[in-house]
Computed example of a mutant assay.
Amino acid sequence: MSNRDGDRSVALDYVAALGGTDPAEVAALVSDDFRNEHHAELGSGCVGRDEYARRLPGFFATFPNRRYEVIETAVGELVGDSRDGSEVVVRYRFGADVEGTRIDIPGVMWISVRDGLVTRRLDCWDSLTFYRQTGLDPA
């Protein structure tokens, strides 16, 4: 049986680090085989802590003054998964400055936590809202 409160704390620490100032702090919270998955059209996935750590500074630069406001969480175990750990769903609002415009976009992350580390993040947020708020051309 997993430690759901501890796993929720790991997931929330990860989300807080994404809104912080140190990409290395984010990378330290993920496993070596971390999977970063996106269901948003603008997102770009990758596999492995090293590749994720390489990409994080670009994410931080693209979205300065980031913040993640956690709206609610749910914690459970993946049915049929024999490994100890939890699945943490985090509903959030993402704010950042993009080319002089402040964005505010709702989203959901499904975060898998095993052995005190994030092993997978599936992120979904509304790309159309991003384009409407920034006025940028999706082409």
Rank of each mutant, 00 (worst) to 15 (best):
M1Y: 07
S2F: 13
N3D: 15
R4V: 14
R4H: 15
D5T: 11
D5Y: 09
D5G: 01
S9L: 12
V10I: 15
A11P: 02
L12D: 03
D13C: 13
Y14Q: 08
Y14I: 10
A16V: 09
A16G: 11
L18W: 15
G19L: 00
D22R: 11
P23V: 11
P23L: 07
E25D: 14
V26Q: 05
V26Y: 01
A27N: 06
V30A: 08
V30L: 06
S31P: 09
S31Q: 06
S31N: 07
D32M: 03
D33Y: 13
F34D: 01
E37M: 15
E37C: 13
H38A: 08
H39T: 15
A40Y: 03
E41Q: 14
G43R: 00
G43M: 02
S44G: 10
S44H: 07
G45A: 07
V47M: 09
G48W: 00
D50L: 04
D50M: 04
D50N: 08
E51D: 15
A53D: 05
A53F: 04
R54M: 05
R55Q: 15
R55D: 11
R55L: 15
R55F: 11
L56C: 01
P57K: 09
P57W: 10
P57C: 13
P57E: 13
G58K: 12
G58N: 13
F60D: 05
T62N: 11
F63Q: 02
F63G: 02
P64G: 09
P64N: 09
N65Q: 15
R66Y: 00
R66N: 02
R67D: 11
Y68F: 15
V70S: 01
I71T: 13
E72G: 12
T73Q: 08
A74H: 15
A74K: 12
V75D: 00
V75L: 05
V75M: 00
G76M: 03
G76K: 05
E77F: 06
G80L: 11
S82H: 15
R83S: 14
G85H: 01
G85C: 05
E87F: 14
E87A: 15
V88H: 01
V88G: 05
V90K: 01
R93F: 05
V98K: 09
V98G: 06
T101Y: 06
I103E: 06
I103Y: 07
I105F: 08
P106H: 02
G107W: 05
V108S: 08
V108E: 10
W110N: 10
I111Q: 00
I111R: 02
S112I: 08
V113I: 02
V113A: 08
V113R: 01
R114K: 12
D115H: 03
G116Y: 05
L117H: 12
L117C: 07
L117G: 03
T119F: 04
T119W: 06
R120A: 13
R121H: 08
D123K: 02
D123I: 12
D126Q: 08
D126G: 10
S127L: 10
L128F: 11
F130A: 07
F130Q: 06
R132N: 12
R132Q: 15
Q133P: 08
T134H: 04
T134P: 02
T134Q: 04
P138Q: 10
P138K: 10
A139L: 13
A139F: 14
